[in-house]
């Protein structure tokens, strides 16, 4: 029974990692851009929510609604005025620019908020749990997984049911031809990064309510997110969810054997998938 419990907790943790990864997966799928500052942007989102909570006395779940548009604007501007300039065949400029951004964000947060670890207040929600048979399921982890599934459903709807989604897919397939049809790739990319930042804000909400965070935790979140995207297969959002769950499961199972092995087991699961399926479980984009 203890193993069933461990597996359930692992799947729920996977929901969090899928949320970290969904924005990364979206941006990569559309413009083949790997944003090395993704983890730090999640942490930035968490501090923004914290700021709204402490200054305006909002609940974190309300504050996220205020923070999301701001993060959308930030993502839009970031893409429009900085990242679009470095997109191209050479992978070096976007990598180095986002790496620089990651270092700048980490140290700006360190300067602004100190290295003390913080947590978003949840008024008891963090410790609430539901009993399902013999297993205790935390309310917050369950909400995280449900949110992750919802985010992916909504993203897929946008992708396949809307004009914007059609423009996304067209630009992703062939930006030059898409621009002949009246689509402006620069704007499409900016909107895509803006949407990714909304997902980042949602991920930040759960990052901050479920555990402590400080300015240095971003890179580790980037790595988990990246592993989930690769395991799932580039460009597949449902694959990303499964990838997140595999990392979550591996970490929880590893921790159950020896607490020191938690992070290590996640990484090793990633290498094993890479060994067997180098292009991930559901590869879609051909690169």
């Amino acid at each position: 029974m203890i193993w069933v419990n461990t597996i359930v907790q692992g799947i729920l943790l996977g929901g969090l990692y899928a949320l970290f990864a969904a924005g990364l997966s979206l941006v990569f799928g559309i413009m083949r851009l790997v944003n090395l500052a993704h983890g730090d942007l999640i942490v930035l989102g968490a501090y923004l929510i914290l700021l709204l909570v402490t200054l305006l006395g909002l609940s974190p779940f309300v504050a996220v609604l205020v923070a999301a548009p701001a993060m959308f604007a930030l993502g839009w501007a970031l893409q429009r005025y900085m990242l679009n300039r470095v997109l191209g065949d050479d992978i070096l400029p976007p990598l180095l620019v986002t790496f620089g951004l990651s270092i700048v964000l980490q140290n700006a947060l360190l300067e602004g908020f100190s290295a003390d670890s913080q947590r978003l207040p949840t008024a008891g929600l963090a410790s609430a749990s539901i009993e399902l048979g013999a297993i205790n399921v935390g309310v917050l982890p369950l909400m995280t997984l449900v949110t992750a599934v919802l985010v992916i459903v909504v993203l897929n709807q946008i992708f396949y049911r809307t004009r914007l989604g059609r423009a996304f897919r067209a630009t992703s397939d062939d930006a030059v031809t898409a621009s002949l049809m009246g689509i402006k790739p620069a704007n499409i990319f900016a909107v895509a990064t803006g949407i990714a930042m909304i997902i980042v804000t949602i991920a930040a909400l759960y990052l901050g309510t479920r555990a402590n965070f400080d300015p240095s935790v971003g890179p580790a979140r980037l790595i988990y997110a990246f592993e989930a995207v690769i395991i799932g297969g580039l460009g597949s959002l449902w694959g990303t969810l499964l990838g997140g769950i595999i990392i979550g499961l591996a970490q929880t199972l590893g921790a159950a054997i020896n607490p020191e092995w938690q992070i290590l087991s996640g990484h090793i699961a990633f290498l094993l998938v890479l060994l067997v399926r180098p292009r991930g479980l559901f590869p879609r984009a051909v690169d």
Partner: peptide, 15 residues
């Protein structure tokens, strides 16, 4: 601040 400035210079050079 040192690292922040280093990061900004790195980004500016790349751009």
């Amino acid at each position: 601040w040192y690292l922040m400035i280093l990061g900004v210079i790195g980004i500016a050079v790349m751009l």
